[in-house]
Design a protein around this nucleic acid. Structure first.
Lengths: 213, 213
DNA sequence: TAGATTGTTAATCGATTAACAATC
DNA sequence: TAGATTGTTAATCGATTAACAATC
């Protein structure tokens, strides 16, 4: 925790990992876990894990450790998992369709309500019972239906423009798959996924490990 | 640069961003750029940019700045972009197909050579002229064909197992889309994409910005 | 030459790790 | 109670930022 009381991004990005490994433990019938055991699973140090968790409160018990179920629930609450989010996807190409089809999200409260595209060939096509709608109808749709998260799966040339449309119609969270950094104001949540940067990073390490070995 | 001479992961992950923005500049006919201008584009400080670049050599010129074309080429060389990588995808579901279809990668030297799946219904189906092959034929395929990068798009239950098969048949770079942390030995390059963690992080920030506003 | 901007060293800041008293 | 393990403070480490001499 920094002095202004805000929790650092690095901490936030470790929370999903704790959440996931705790889920694995529970599935295996383990309902008690120490920071040391979590360390072995996650690869983070026990000290760091305790520090991270204590940003949000004392979830453990001295001499015992953490109750896995309770800790997982608490982390879920902190992150807002299972809160039920209304999601729309803009761009119904490969990535848009893959996101729409990814069942895992539905189980955790992320509900895709609609897909939009500008390609007339896709219009009316159904993905998971959802008809692909015309992107021109997007502003009107947003005026009528509450949407929490807008997923951008368009080409990069129009991604910022799409984001602007989403935001000016009330959306406050954007998950961006276009290979650009979408710029938003302070009050909007954004995640730029950047698969391409991930691939380049992989290529770098591949190249360099080869040179070493 | 740390004292052992290894360049930190944080630096490596900024390189693709430099590469991309330099490409944008060139496309706009701009072929000279200062660290200060790059700072405005990327959001990193000019000082950090100069530090980052000087891990790899002095690409700039005092009083002038950087030649955009040259700098982009150098960064491309450092990361190994355009080196031509032979890629296979294991798991030909939504994500696997989306990756296979993503044209951007082809332009940058990443060439998908084959898709594998265990679902008999998908067998023989064609994605971008590539027939989906039986996963049972994977080891034999790898003995015959050189592959640089294995992309894992399977369910999480089998992802580690698939990684082991890939590695034991000579693959040294893995791009993992399954929501797990695949464990590999030191000499193997791995990128765990973790879209689910990205989504949870988005949910966290969305929730917290709402509370603040 | 004067002005601009790099390359690089030094200072600062924040994140991680270590240590240990508190306590279950 | 003794042993275990947290919560938390202090120490360390590394990454970022600031500053400026070098130089184009």
């Amino acid at each position: 925790m920094t002095k202004n009381g805000k929790i650092s991004d690095a901490v936030i990005r470790r929370l999903p990992k704790y959440y996931r490994y705790l889920g694995d433990l529970l599935k295996n019938g383990i309902n008690r876990v120490s920071s040391n055991e979590l360390s072995k699973l996650t690869g983070f140090t026990a000290s760091q894990i305790r520090q991270d968790l204590n940003n949000f409160g004392g979830f453990g018990q001295q001499g015992y450790g953490y109750d896995a179920k309770n800790l997982r629930d608490e982390i879920g609450k902190i992150m807002g998992i299972n809160n039920n989010y209304q999601v729309i996807i803009v761009g119904a190409g490969n990535i848009g369709q893959a996101v729409a089809n990814y069942a895992g999200f539905y189980e955790e409260g992320f509900e895709v309500k609609a897909l939009f595209d500008k390609n007339p060939k896709l219009m009316g096509l159904k993905i998971r019972d959802l008809e692909i709608k015309d992107i021109d109808d997007l502003p009107e749709y947003l005026r009528e239906v509450h949407v929490d998260i807008g997923v951008i799966c368009t080409p990069k040339e129009v991604s910022q423009n799409v984001a602007n449309i989403l935001i000016s119609n009330g959306i406050r969270a954007i998950w961006n798959f276009a290979p650009t950094d979408i710029k938003v104001s302070e009050n909007i949540a954004i995640e730029n996924v950047h698969m391409n940067e991930s691939l380049y990073t992989l290529a770098y390490y591949y190249k360099n490990k080869k040179e070493i070995n």
